[in-house]
């Protein structure tokens, strides 16, 4: 069954002041919000700028605000809003490129600063055997192929949009960047690299800028728990400073 949905979308361009435009589209009642946005682009306004790729919360590119809350519209059913009008806005705390597209450059630079890589070797099975990819292959040969999985973070930028500190300090390293540092810290035992990572997190715009609103963890669609990572980093840094204080 199809339903008619009203979308109020924030439109802007470099030379156009941000303003809201309202569109009515018809979508399946099983559709997700991204399908409705695509309907606007396909049937109402081909100039609408928005970003998407995977349609299943793996790529993180489509992140927007739906009725004031940061979401991945590709996995949010329109049914959740019971036919009520949806206000779609770009993420906060980023420069807007146009309409729903924001400039993610600074975000990716911060992710890169810790050498964070979005794939990781898989954990072992409970019996200690490495998990192997077997889909459609001979299990004997497939078992020799190492299976990599993605990190939980899909680099959608939702946590930065939800973070109130980010609104006050645009140089703040941000929840995702700090969570990436924590992940890298967990992976290495190299004292030089650990020192570099902790110093990165301990900078002027690092973990101490966080004011513990926990909005990043609440908004994160992928259970990255950035706020918890920030608290863990604080603990590590405090321990490091105490050791230095007592000459250890």
């Amino acid at each position: 069954m199809s339903i008619t949905l009203t979308l109020r979308i924030l439109r802007s361009r470099r030379d156009v002041m941000p303003h809201y435009e309202t569109f009515e589209v018809s979508v399946s009642d099983a559709a997700n919000v991204l399908d409705a946005i695509e309907q606007v682009w396909a049937h109402r306004d081909r100039k609408l700028m928005f970003r998407h790729a995977c349609h299943h919360a793996s790529c993180g590119t489509c992140a927007v605000r739906i009725n004031g809350r940061e979401k991945l519209p590709c996995i949010v059913p329109v049914a959740d809003y019971s036919g009520k009008p949806l206000t779609i806005e770009p993420l906060r705390n980023f420069d807007i490129v146009g309409d729903l597209v924001v400039d993610m450059a600074k975000f990716f630079q911060n992710q890169q600063a810790s050498d964070f890589v979005i794939t990781r070797p898989t954990e072992n099975e409970l019996v200690g055997k490495p998990i192997a990819y077997t889909g459609g292959m001979d299990p004997e040969s497939a078992s020799t192929i190492p299976f990599n999985r993605f990190e939980n973070c899909v680099e959608c930028g939702i946590c930065l949009s939800a973070c109130p500190t980010m609104a006050g300090d645009h140089k703040f390293f941000g929840p995702a960047g700090l969570a990436a540092i924590k992940r890298q810290l967990d992976k290495t035992t190299d004292p030089v690299e650990r020192k570099r990572l902790l110093e990165l997190a301990d900078g002027e715009h690092g973990v101490w800028r966080c004011h513990s609103a926990w909005e990043c963890t609440e908004a994160c669609p992928q259970q990255v728990f950035p706020a918890e990572s920030i608290m863990a980093l604080r603990k590590e840094i405090t321990k490091k400073h105490f050791r230095e204080l007592f000459g250890k």
Partner: peptide, 30 residues
């Protein structure tokens, strides 16, 4: 107020008061 206006970029902290996004943590923060 449209807080996405580029001339309000320096006043992004005003977005704290966008109550649509408030959760428990944000209420505690404010």
């Amino acid at each position: 107020m449209n807080l996405y206006r580029p001339d309000l970029k320096r006043f992004r902290f005003l977005r704290w008061f966008d109550f649509r996004s408030w959760r428990l943590g944000m209420i505690a923060y404010i």
